[in-house]
Every structure is written in C-alpha cells, then in structure tokens.
C-alpha cells in the first residue's frame, strides 16, 4: 500500500483537504436517518479492505501533517500529554501494542526489530530510526506513551482499572472535542463523562463501563462518535477556546459547505496486558460538508439527522447556533428518496 502524505495545515490557512480516496473511505457514522446515543460497540478485528477499520491503527494521507500539528500544540502547552506516576508500565504497553501493530499492518512504513529488550524502531514517514531498551525510560527521548503517540494519529486516553472502574490517569490529547486532559486526569469513568447530557439517565454509562471492564487481550472493540467543527481544526480544546470560538460565528450560507466539517471519532478499546489497563484511542476524521454531499446517500441522511437532532444534543455538540444554516445547506442535497441501511456509500 502506498500512501502519499498531504502537505496541509490544521490551523492558520487551514489547507487540510481530503483526496477522492479519503472521501470514499470516510467513516460516516450514521447507519440510519436518525441519531441517538447508544453503546454501539463492535469487535475491532479488521474491516472492509481499504476502510479505516482495516488496520488496528489506521494510517492515512493526513499522518505526517497531523503529527506536525501535534508537535505545535505540545510546544505551546506541554500539559496536553500527561501520565500520573503509576501509569508508566501502561505506557510501555501502549508503545508495544502500537509498534507491533503498525509494523505488521504497514511493513513498508514501519519496522520493529526486537532482540530481547533491545528494540529498534523505524518510522519511515517521519524519518525516525531509534534503538532503545524496552522498559527503560532513560533510553527514549520522552516517556513511552508520549514517544509513540507523537507518532500515531488520534488522541489517546490510557485508563487504569481498579475498584470496578476505569480511571483516566494518562493521555495524549491534542485533537479533542472540547475536553481538557489537564482537568479530567485522575477522574473515573462517570466523572469524566459527567458533562454529557442524557446518557447518564439512560443508563448508557453503566452498560458501557461493564462492557469495557470485560474487554480482554484478544477482544478489542470499537465504536464511532461524532461532532461538528468549523474549519478543519484538530486543536479544539477548552484551553484554546478563545482562539477558535470566534470562528464558529464566521459561517455564512456561501462559505458553509467549505468551512463546516463533520468530525468523526473512531474510538477503540484495548486491554493492556502488562498493566491490566485499557487503551482508549480516539481517532479523529474530518470532512467538509461539500465533500460529504458528494456521496448522495450521506447527503440525504446527514440532512435528516441534523434536522431532527434533539436540542440539547445539538447544544452539547456545539453547533446549535449554526444549525438552521447547516440544515438549510444540507436540504439542497436531500430529495427525500429512501436511503439504504448501513454506513457505506451505495
């Protein structure tokens, strides 16, 4: 598989763009014409060839640019990557899982050579060739979790399992949908989800937690989640809200198709063998509405979902002020024809 990596930015001139292939493989998250919370978990064991579900950690045309954007965010605010002292072993688990997966899934891009605890890691797209001692932090330029997640797309929450709960005790979070690792670190599953409306009363979190606590080494799971973002911006953190907040009010009927993005998270869940922790990667995919509607089924369905979404969910997902304009735009791509079940383009 050959990937040509885009030269693009996620801030400033926002030159981010999707190729025709990237549009076609976009993980459109709606399998019907309406949306409500659900636990919607499925096994993360591959998927359609070419889809974002195929590899364990998907690498796409945005890889290099995303890693550059992460480095910028970290240089401005190092607290976007934190690990409480008891989470170092889990960090090695993360490094091992990602390195072995990527080296197997993308042998032309990544190589891992292991001689006992002496490891050599080659990352061709980023020009890295490092040799280090597994489980010895002093042999890496960063802690193990930070080292490997500076080279892997998506945010990462590393969860400690104890007291029948999951605790967000480490993470690399630079492309989040408006939540702060620095504030939420150390919280349990119910605490960090506290701001999500409705789901608690629906018992969603109780069920989800039971499911997650039982994830085993050989049964990783995944789900899709979504929100909306104006401009293809990865760093929509609460910390920098004053920078990107005004952009939310910059939409006009003329620029909406180009500036309004659907933001989809491919969340996956992995048992970490050495620490018994859980890795929770949150991989973000962005698509402009004008690209999205090039798939007719998606244009029709997305119009119906956004039009009918309950008020509080539209508020939580941060697009309530822009909803009328978005619905107006999307309605032009909905002829009322029925849509086929499932998420895939027809």
């Amino acid at each position: 598989m050959t990937i040509t990596f885009n030269k693009e930015s996620f801030r400033g001139d926002y030159s981010y763009h999707n190729s025709a292939t990237a549009i076609r493989r976009f993980p459109f998250p709606f399998d019907r014409d309406e949306y409500m919370y659900s636990v919607n978990m499925e096994p993360h064991k591959g998927g359609r060839p070419g889809s974002v579900f195929e590899a364990r950690f998907d690498v796409d045309e945005h890889y290099v640019a995303e890693m550059e954007d992460r480095a910028i965010t970290l240089s401005r605010d190092p607290m976007r990557c934190q690990s409480l002292p008891h989470m170092t072993l889990a960090g090695w688990d993360v490094l091992e899982l990602i390195m072995t997966s990527k080296a197997q899934d993308y042998p032309d891009l990544f190589e891992l050579h292991r001689d006992g605890n002496r490891w050599r890691w080659v990352n061709r797209p980023l020009g890295i060739d490092d040799t280090f001692t597994f489980l010895d932090e002093t042999t890496l330029p960063y802690g193990p979790m930070e080292y490997i997640t500076r080279q892997t797309q998506g945010d990462f929450a590393v969860l400690d399992q104890r007291e029948g709960n999951l605790w967000m005790d480490a993470g690399m979070v630079t492309s989040q949908a408006d939540w702060s690792l620095d504030f939420d670190i150390g919280m349990n599953f119910f605490e960090w989800h506290a701001p999500v409306p409705r789901a608690a009363e629906m018992g969603i979190f109780q069920r989800a937690l039971k499911f997650l606590l039982n994830i085993q080494q050989d049964t990783p799971a995944r789900r899709l989640n979504w929100t909306m973002t104006v401009n293809p911006r990865l760093d929509t953190s609460p910390e920098t809200y004053p920078e990107w907040g005004p952009e939310k009010r910059s939409l006009t009927p003329e620029n909406l198709g180009q500036k309004q993005y659907l933001r989809v998270e491919l969340q996956s869940f992995w048992r970490l063998p050495r620490s018994n922790g859980l890795l929770f990667p949150i991989r973000c995919y962005l698509i402009s509405l004008q690209d999205l509607v090039t798939v007719p089924k998606w244009g029709r369905r997305f119009h119906r979902v956004i039009r009918d979404l309950p008020e509080d969910l539209a508020t939580y997902k941060g697009f309530i002020v822009n909803r009328p304009m978005i619905v107006d735009y999307l309605s032009r791509f909905d002829d009322g024809a029925p849509t086929s079940p499932g998420i895939w383009p027809d």
């Binding site: 939420d184 150390g186 605490e191 506290a194």
Partner: peptide
C-alpha cells in the same frame, strides 16, 4: 459544574 477532585476545583471557561 464539572469538578476535579485532584485539583480540588470546578472548571471556569471563557
């Protein structure tokens, strides 16, 4: 209303 026990503080947002 979001509260961090580790920091001992609620969150203030612009």
């Amino acid at each position: 209303d979001h509260f961090s026990a580790r920091l001992g503080a609620f969150q203030g947002v612009c």
